[in-house]
Nucleic acid binder design. Structure first.
Length: 398
DNA sequence: AAATGTCCCTCGTGCGAGGG
DNA sequence: CCCTCGCACGAGGGACATTT
C-alpha cells in the first residue's frame, strides 16, 4: 500500500526537518502534504458529486445546527477564525452519527493498491498484466506502462473496497480530524486525514475560502478586517449612487455615467469575494481577472479592459503592487489586484479634473477608447505605468 | 460611442531529455 | 534518483480594426 507509505514518508521527512530546524525541508514536506490532501479532496469531491447526503443534512438542518454551534464572536483575523472553526465538532454539521474514535465505513475514499511489474519483453508484459488482472476481477484497474533500464514496466492501480474512517481530536494540531484508513489492530494505518475545512470543501463542493466564509456565517464569527472592507464597499456604492450624477460632477458623469453598472459589479464582486481578500501595502485587496469580470458582466474582456483602466486612472480603483510570486493556472495574476479607497468629495473632485483633461483638453478620449499610449500622451509615463502593469503592453510600446 | 472579434506578446507549467 | 534545461502550450492583459 504505497499511498500509505508515501504519506508516512512525507511525515517522517517533516519530523526530521523540524528536528534539524531545516526550514526549507519543512516547507517542502508541508507542501507535499498539502498537495496530497488537496488531491484527495478533489478525488472525494468527484466520488460524492455536488449532491450528497452530508450536504443534504447540512442544508436541511442549518437552523438547528446554527442554534447548537453558534458562538457569535467578533475577531480580528482570518487565522483566528480558522482556529475557532477547528474547534467545532463537525459531526453535528454533517450528520455523522458516530462516537469519537469509533470506526465506520468511509464512503468517499477507496483503498488503493499499486502493483509494479517488470518484464523483459513487451509480449511477456502484456501476458503478465492479463494474469495479474485476473486476480482483481470486477474491480476498477488503471494500467500504465513505461520502459526503464531496458525493461518493460507495467503499473496497476487497483481501487478496492471502502476504507474505514473515524473521528479524532488531534491535540498537537488542535483540531477535529476525519481519519481515513484502518484501525485493525494487526495492521493499523492512515491514508489521509481531513479537517473540517477539507470536509466542507468535499461535501459542499467549494474551495477553501468559500468554506471559511460559510462556516463563519454559520458560527456567527465576524472577522473585523473583512467586515471593514464590506462596510467600505457598501458606503462607496451608495456614494456613487448619490453623487455620481449629472448635476454634481457633470464631466465625470459624461465620461463614465454609462459605466456605473460596471463599477457596481466590481463592488458586488468584491463583497462576494470578501474572504478572498489579501493584505497589501495599500490595505485589503482582491483579484479579479479581466476575463472573469467580463463574464460576470456579460461582456468581452476587451470591452471591460479600458473601462477598468479608466477607473484606475480616476482613482476609483487602485492597482496595488502585489508580489505574490505565484502566477498561473488557478492563481490570480499579480496585476489584477484592486484596492478600492473610501470614496469622498475630494476623490471625485480630482476625478472630475481628470475627466476634464480626457474629454476637453486636446484630443477627446472616451472611456472605452482609453489605452496605454493615450494615457502616456495625456498624463505621462509615470502615471501610465501605475495603471498599465502588463509587461507586454510596455514591451510593445517601446 | 460602445461592443466585438481577432490578434499579439509574455509568463508559468508540464513534460521529456540529458547530466550529475 | 534528483536536478536542470529546452520546448510547446495555454492563460491572460491589452491593442486595434470593425461592427452595432
Amino acid at each position: 500500500m504505497d499511498r500509505i507509505e508515501s504519506i508516512k514518508d512525507i511525515l517522517d521527512k517533516r519530523e526530521l526537518a523540524i528536528a534539524e530546524d531545516d526550514r526549507r525541508a519543512v516547507n517542502k514536506a508541508n507542501k507535499a502534504l498539502n498537495s496530497t490532501i488537496k488531491a484527495n479532496v478533489i478525488k472525494a469531491q468527484e466520488a460524492l458529486g455536488a449532491d450528497n447526503k452530508y450536504k443534504e443534512y447540512f442544508v436541511n438542518n442549518i437552523e438547528h445546527i446554527k442554534e447548537l454551534l453558534v458562538i457569535n464572536k467578533e475577531i480580528n483575523t482570518i487565522e483566528e477564525a480558522i482556529g475557532l472553526i477547528h474547534q467545532v465538532d463537525f459531526r453535528y454539521i454533517f450528520g455523522l452519527d458516530v462516537l469519537m474514535e469509533e470506526p465506520f465505513a468511509c464512503e468517499f475514499i477507496n483503498s488503493e493498491r499499486r502493483i509494479s511489474l517488470a518484464f523483459t519483453t513487451e509480449e511477456k508484459a502484456n501476458v503478465g498484466v492479463e494474469k495479474e488482472m485476473e486476480r482483481f476481477k470486477g474491480k476498477e484497474i488503471i494500467v500504465s506502462s513505461y520502459e526503464r533500464f531496458g525493461m518493460y514496466i507495467k503499473e496497476l492501480v487497483v481501487s478496492g473496497e471502502n476504507t474505514e474512517a473515524w473521528i479524532t481530536y488531534n491535540l498537537t494540531r488542535n483540531k477535529y480530524l476525519y481519519m481515513v484508513g484502518s484501525k485493525k489492530e494487526d495492521n493499523p494505518y492512515v491514508i489521509i486525514s481531513f479537517d473540517i475545512l477539507d470536509l466542507c470543501q468535499i461535501f459542499m463542493k467549494c474551495d477553501i475560502s468559500k468554506a471559511i466564509q460559510g462556516l463563519c456565517e454559520l458560527l456567527g464569527i465576524r472577522i473585523k478586517e473583512f467586515e471593514e472592507v464590506r462596510g467600505r464597499y457598501e458606503r462607496c456604492k451608495s456614494f456613487v449612487r448619490n453623487n455620481l450624477t449629472k448635476d454634481k460632477f457633470p464631466i465625470l458623469f459624461e465620461l463614465i455615467g454609462e459605466q456605473i453598472p460596471k463599477l457596481e459589479t466590481i463592488f458586488e464582486e468584491g463583497i462576494d469575494k470578501l474572504y478572498y481578500h489579501g493584505e497589501s501595502k495599500e490595505g485589503m485587496v482582491f483579484s479579479a481577472s479581466m476575463q472573469y469580470l467580463a463574464d460576470t458582466m456579460g461582456k468581452r474582456k476587451s470591452t471591460i479592459n479600458p473601462i477598468v483602466n479608466i477607473f484606475a486612472l480616476l482613482g476609483l480603483l487602485q492597482k496595488p503592487d502585489v508580489r505574490s510570486g505565484i502566477y498561473g493556472k488557478g492563481c490570480n495574476n499579480d496585476i489584477t489586484y484592486y484596492y478600492i479607497p473610501e470614496y469622498n468629495n475630494e476623490i471625485f473632485q480630482k476625478a472630475e479634473q481628470l475627466a476634464m483633461i480626457l474629454l476637453y483638453n486636446g484630443e477627446r478620449v472616451t472611456a472605452s477608447s482609453f489605452s496605454y499610449s493615450i494615457c502616456i500622451e495625456k498624463f505621462g509615463q509615470e502615471i501610465a505605468n501605475k495603471i498599465f502593469k502588463d509587461k507586454v503592453t510596455k514591451a510593445r510600446a517601446s
